[in-house]
């Protein structure tokens, strides 16, 4: 499951840009993850602050 550490997230939207399934949405300061997420982890790599994690 993809988890968002909301204490770390700086809501820049870089993760949204790389998501191949369009599963992320940045709502002002709130990153939403939809059920379409395939847990590919691309978003975790691009995140400048390391706020995203795919947990087994």
């Amino acid at each position: 499951m993809l988890t968002v550490n909301r204490y770390k997230c700086c809501y820049c939207g870089a993760c949204v840009a790389v998501c191949p399934t369009c599963s992320l949405e940045l709502v002002e300061t709130w990153l939403e993850v939809s059920a379409e997420c395939k847990e590919c982890g691309l978003c975790t790599k691009i995140c400048p602050v390391g706020a995203l994690e795919v947990e087994a």
Partner: peptide, 26 residues
């Protein structure tokens, strides 16, 4: 609508960025 654009994808223009095509900045 910026780097996190949705309008293009809604209209059928694939604007998803591959990792080599985006810089992660701080």
């Amino acid at each position: 609508d910026g780097v996190e654009s949705k309008v293009g994808r809604w209209a059928g223009i694939d604007t998803t960025l591959k990792l080599p095509d985006i810089e992660s900045c701080a």
